[in-house]
């Protein structure tokens, strides 16, 4: 492969892989916006969805992408139930205890999945897994391309929902100024429940995408949460397209890091960039500096 060929192949791999971080990051960003907690269990919920897709494929011959028609509503419902059970308190659960609850949920899910389904690495192998489109000397995996398309669709759907619907507008209002939103009559507990449910549904989408295109095991969750968090920081909190772009940038960095450096140093690249962004432009790469009005 020529130098340019390697460059473009790495770029494409990074973009396709990063879009998965992006989907997880959008959910994380929405949940952070409305509830002010880092939902650290986001990655573990993703892996739970990955198992869902895996079992639907192996036991019921569901195509992994087709399994979304069950995973998406199922995880939205799961999100709603989790919110009602863990985060809804009339007297307002303190932010720090909410973070601890999220942390506990992550540990619980991780261990539960290991106990129930063993810590073995799993992968969904369909007839088209491993097939690639080839042109100009580049190989593009079909599953990863489909995952990328889904990520774009999900981002678009969430953006349009936030922009065009009354409920979506209420979510944006509550994220920007919860007190002002309450003065408008916006029911903030309902807004939180809905954003949380959507965030979890996005984790479900990310999980199905993971299962469809990569191998996974129960401990992948924490790493995904961490990467999604970096993607959110790169893109700027509260921005949906920013979160997707942040994920894609992270994916590209990692794919370049994995090529240029070996072993653990490959991971260091993304963390170094993360630190640099926090130091130089903490509001995120795509955010205008906020001014108070």
């Amino acid at each position: 492969m020529t130098g340019a060929g390697v460059f473009f192949q790495l770029l494409i791999n990074g973009i396709l892989f990063g879009s998965m971080y992006g989907v997880a990051a959008i959910g994380l960003s929405l949940i952070f916006g409305s509830m002010e907690i880092i939902f650290i269990a986001q990655g573990s919920v993703m892996i739970l969805a990955a198992y869902g897709t895996y079992f639907l494929f192996n036991m019921a011959q569901f195509d992994p992408f087709f399994s979304l028609i069950l995973v998406l509503p199922g995880f939205m419902l799961l999100g709603f139930v989790l919110f009602m059970a863990l985060f809804r308190r009339k007297d307002g659960l303190n932010k720090y205890s909410s973070l601890l609850v999220a942390f506990g949920l992550m540990i619980l899910l991780e261990n539960l999945m290991s106990v129930l389904w063993t810590p073995d690495t799993r992968a969904v192998i369909t007839s088209y897994t491993g097939q690639a489109l080839s042109f100009w000397g580049l190989d593009i995996s079909i599953t990863r391309l489909l995952v990328f398309g889904l990520s774009i669709l999900a981002t678009l759907a969430v953006s349009l929902w936030l922009r065009l619907t009354l409920m979506g507008n209420a979510v944006r209002a509550a994220i920007e100024n919860p007190q002002a939103a309450a003065l408008m009559g916006i029911k903030t507990p309902r807004v939180k429940a809905i954003t949380f449910a959507i965030g979890i549904a996005l984790a479900g989408l990310g999980g199905t995408a993971t299962a469809a295109s990569y191998s996974f095991d129960p401990t992948f969750g924490f790493l995904f949460s961490l990467k999604a968090l970096i993607a959110v920081a790169l893109g700027g909190i509260g921005s949906v397209t920013g979160a997707l772009l942040g994920g894609i940038i992270l994916g590209v960095l990692e794919s370049a890091g994995a090529y240029l450096f070996t072993g653990v140093w490959a991971h260091a690249v993304s963390y170094i960039v993360f630190l640099l962004v926090l130091m130089v432009k903490p509001e995120g790469l795509f955010m205008k500096r906020t001014r108070s009005a």
């Binding site: 507008n169 944006r172 209002a173 920007e176 002002a180 939103a181 408008m184 009005a293």
Partner: peptide, 13 residues
């Protein structure tokens, strides 16, 4: 005001 939103959106809220 919701400064990240339009005039119309503020009123709708």
């Amino acid at each position: 005001l919701f400064t990240k939103m339009t005039v119309a959106e503020n009123l709708r809220m």
